[in-house]
Structure formats: structure tokens, C-alpha cells
Design a binder for these strands. Sequence first.
DNA 1: AGAACGTACGCACAAATGTGCACATGCCGG
DNA 2: CCGGCATGTGCACATTTGTGCGTACGTTCT
Lengths: 317, 317
Amino acid sequence: MPPPRDQQLLVKAARLYYEEGRSQNEIATALQVSRSSVSRMLTAARERGIVRIQINDPTGRDMDLESELTARFGLRDCRVAEIHSGDRPLSRVGDLGARWLLDNLHPGQQVGVSWGHGLQAVVQHIPDEGGLDVEVLPLVGGLSAVDSAISGEELVRDLAGRVGGRFQRLHAPALLTSKAGRDVLLAEPSIQRTLDAARRVQVALVGIGSAGHGSSASLVKAMSLSESERERFDAAHPAGDVCARFFDAEGKAILGPTDDRVLGVSLADLAAIPLVAGVAAGPEKAGGALGALRTRVLDVLVCDSSLARALLARDAR
Amino acid sequence: MPPPRDQQLLVKAARLYYEEGRSQNEIATALQVSRSSVSRMLTAARERGIVRIQINDPTGRDMDLESELTARFGLRDCRVAEIHSGDRPLSRVGDLGARWLLDNLHPGQQVGVSWGHGLQAVVQHIPDEGGLDVEVLPLVGGLSAVDSAISGEELVRDLAGRVGGRFQRLHAPALLTSKAGRDVLLAEPSIQRTLDAARRVQVALVGIGSAGHGSSASLVKAMSLSESERERFDAAHPAGDVCARFFDAEGKAILGPTDDRVLGVSLADLAAIPLVAGVAAGPEKAGGALGALRTRVLDVLVCDSSLARALLARDAR
DNA sequence: AGAACGTACGCACAAATGTGCACATGCCGG
DNA sequence: CCGGCATGTGCACATTTGTGCGTACGTTCT
């Protein structure tokens, strides 16, 4: 057999062609092969994945805000939906979130999701094509108390259906009325197993709650805090939550009874996940999103331009 | 001014050309423009970054081991140097590490580094070309007690010089003989500032120490532990360290006196950094590297094939 | 309004690229 | 040892792609 196509040579040809922009003729001379070989080598390089061509659609995105947010908050990636009057921000953010997820989720991986309107919007915008072979996991328990439209259970199943993957369920509520109650459930092998798997996902997609808005408000109610607990919680100045884990405006986790009654991954667990994306829409979420960014748990932010501007203004130095 | 080239159309053309492999003629018909316009649109798409072409050099890498490690330990990326008899593993790993860093470090970002032979090898393999405009920061204090060849101070300066960026110094030792001593230094504004900046880097590159080998051994000495402290430390079964932060074989951080005397970022700080890469070479590092992977602080591993195989064997399920 | 400019378009031609074919080379199995 | 068989190469030709030029159209400035 003749020597298998020399990888080294393929790489060299690809560099000359795609990076330095030389013609195949020049490359042929430089590498001492015929021009037609160069043509074939480049084809081989593309086929073998040595050359990767990806297209990145900036339509409807505000790249300036994206790079400012990326720099300011040390993010790995950022998607900002340009909102024109009349647009439904949530829908545009959902679209960008869906595209981000499809760009960053690779076959064979696991992905964890929380819940919320933002997440729901993302999942709705994922085309129902299947064939990705990923596993979808819930990062927190179910929420019966909150608006049923945004239940996590559904979201996990719907997402798995659309991308064409498997999923696991977490047969437990997200919020318990006591730490003891939560700990009993945590001891359940099936719950432990799912939660352990959730901690090991490669990609997590979470909604960002903001104090007093949407589910964040309902969450607090569902914990049925005593008066003193409630006071203690308020004294810590909660700014928002991710996966029902609250933090203040500086991004400091708020522990104590409110945290002990949550069944789901912790903020530290999230920090350990290689790629965590937060989704939020609307300037009223600025408080929560700012705190979330400062927890440094998020690697990626998907939001709309008005929220982006609010974040940059509030974080002004 | 006529409306700027329709982004939407550029994207559509790029998709048809690069993803579906249609000829420019077909695209011209489909989009109702002349073929020459299609040619120009594609050029524009490349210039505006809508189409990105990257080449990925698999030379000297074992892609099979890479994907196995990636899957097994939930990494975001992995580079495994194929070692043939006679190669110096460290040199090959350094080369891959350098290439990884150049692929993942973007202009305007900050990068944090620790120290060690592995890091030194990486820095040596970075071509002295400059023009990247990044800032290099030390993640831990200096090490005078350990082999001077691997001092972090030098590494930071050398790396900054090669990539052509700025750097900051941490005017303090990594290891103190008491927590009080460290806390005094931590209170220094200049030190606090640098360390704060180090916590905010977008990319971190760290060496992985393994208990009893290389600098890990010297580190313990330099802390001058009392007998009881030493016993307590050993009882926790240290498997290795990253940035002088020790952990056991399960990846659990080892706190206590040994940890309190370190001046540098913590494991939790590292977990919060969006992209952390660990570098290690040689199968004797398996213990430390396995623990490090299990801390889930690392997003990326750069190693050689013998270490990769040792890791997979030890982690067998 | 009209000049001056910048951008985009199509045509036609030149240059670059892809590919069918014939042939070389190393390996295997009878 | 010799005929497949698989892989790689160069040649010649067909197709595809890039680009200079003349033109059209909208914006801005005078």
C-alpha cells in the first residue's frame, strides 16, 4: 500500500490555502505535487475534519452589545437579540437560545435544563428534527405550585423529543417545606442517581429569575417560610435565582433555610459544569441577571438588547 | 446609501454553498441574483465573519483517546499527544498545550497561569510572534523553595512576551508558614487587586501536581507543617494539587492548615473561570490528574497518550 | 436641483478548481 | 510468481469561480 495520505501534508496544504489564501498552483509547487493532487488533498482535509467551516448567523443579533457583555462579565459566549418595536422579546431570545444550544450541543453529550418562560421559549424554537442523540436531564425538581405552562417536566420531555434524544425524570418537587423533607427525598436512590447525572452534564441551560418577578416570587411563597425565616431571607437582599438558588446583587449565594429546601443542583454544582448558559428577557430581569452574572456560574448569556443595555448601565464602573 | 448587503441573504447563500455544497450558479437561480453577485456575497460573508474556516491539526494527536477522555470526564475539550518511543513526552504535550492556548485565547482577554514543568513546556512552545493583546496573570504567588526553573514569575513574563501582551505580577510567595502570615499579605491592596483580577480571567492554564512527584512534594515541605498538621494532611489522602490546592482521589478539596497557607486562587475560584485547562505529562501523574478531573474544576485536559491510558484504566467502571 | 460619492449589479473574460481516465505502485492471496 | 485490489498520481478537459469595467441607483452636500 502506498503511504496513506500524509496528514502533515494535508494540514500544510489546508493552511496555505485557507489561511494564507494561496492558489492551488502555488501550493502544488511549494509541496512538490501536481495541482490536481492539491485539489484532492483539500477535499480530503475537509472530509477528515482537518478543515472545519462553520457559519454563524448574526441576523437579529446585536454584536456590539454581545462583545461588550462578553468583555465586561468575562463570558465565554453571548447572544443578544435585537428587539424592534413590536417584537416579542421572549420569542427572539428563545430563537437565539435554541440556535446557541444546537451549535454547542454535540452528539453523545448530556444537557441539563431548569425551567421558566425563558427556557420554554428556547425549547419551542428548537426545530423538531431529531437525530442528535443526546440525553436531557432536569437540574431541579418539578414545580407544581408555579404556572403549569412552564413546568420543567414537560420541558425536558419536549426538548428530548425535538432533538431526538433520551431523557430522565426527577420524580420530586423542587421545593419542600422543610430541610428534613428534602433530605428524605435526597436519600432516595432514584433521585440521587438522576441528580448525580445532572451534576455531570456537559451543557446546562438555565433560566434567570429576578426578585419579585415571575416564578421567583412564586418560589418564595412555595417554601412557606416562617416569619423569622422570611425576615432573614429578605435581610440578605435576594436579587434573583437560578434553579431556585437565590443570590444577592453581588452574586453571593444566599444560604440558610430557603436554600436547604431546594431539591436540585447547587450553584457550586453549576459552576463545575463546563458550559452553563443563562437565558433571560426583558429589562425588568436586570437585577436578577446582574447577580447571576456576578456569581460567575454562567459561562454564556442569552438575552435581548434592552436587558443587555440595562445590565451594562447598572454595572457601570 | 443603498441598504447594506442583506445579512439574511448572505447567510442563506453561505449555507447553500458551504453546507449544502451547491454551485454558485444554482444559488444565483435560487436567490434571484446574478452568479457574480453570489461570488461577491460569499466573499463578503467570509470577510464579515459569517463564515468561519478553522483548521484543526490532528498531527501527533490521538483522537480516539481524546474523545474517550472527553466523554468519560465530561470535558469541553481534550488534547492527547501521541508519544512514540524516544519522544520527550513533556515537549509534545507542551506543543499541544501551546496550540490549544493559541486557539482558545482571543484578543482583549485575560489569561491566568500557575507554574510547573508542564506550564513551562507550554510556554516554550508558543511562537514568539506577539500581536495578540492579552493580559497574563499569575494564579498563585511565587515559589522560591521549588526548582527555580519553573518559577511562575518568569513564566508569566515569558508568556506575555511571546504572545505580545501585558502582564501583572503577584509580589508574594505562594506558600506561607502560617495562615496569619498569608492573611496579612492578602490584605495588601496590590495583592488583593491582582488576585481579584486573576479570579476574573476568561482562560486559565494550570499544571497538575501528583502526590509525591515533582513540585507537589516540595510544596508540602515548604509549608513547614507541625507533626499533627502533617498527620491530618496525610489522613486526607492527598492525590495531587492544582495551584497548590490539594485534593484527594475523589476530587474532594483538602482544606485545613495546608490550604490556609496558600496565597492564590481557590479551587472554587477556578471552577468559576469559564475555561480552565490542566496540563500533565507522564503516567506517574495519573493519581493527581484523576483527582483533578474529579474536582470538575478542569474544562480541558492536555496530556500524553500514556497518561491518558492510565486515566481511563484507573477510572474503569 | 445637481454634483459628488459610495455601493451594488450584470456582463464577459481570465483564472482557478474539480474530475474522468489511464497508469503506477505496493500488498494480498492463490 | 502473478493476477486482483486498493490507493495515489498526472494529464487533459469541463466546470466553476473571481474580477475589471461600465452602469444604475440612492444618499449627502452645496
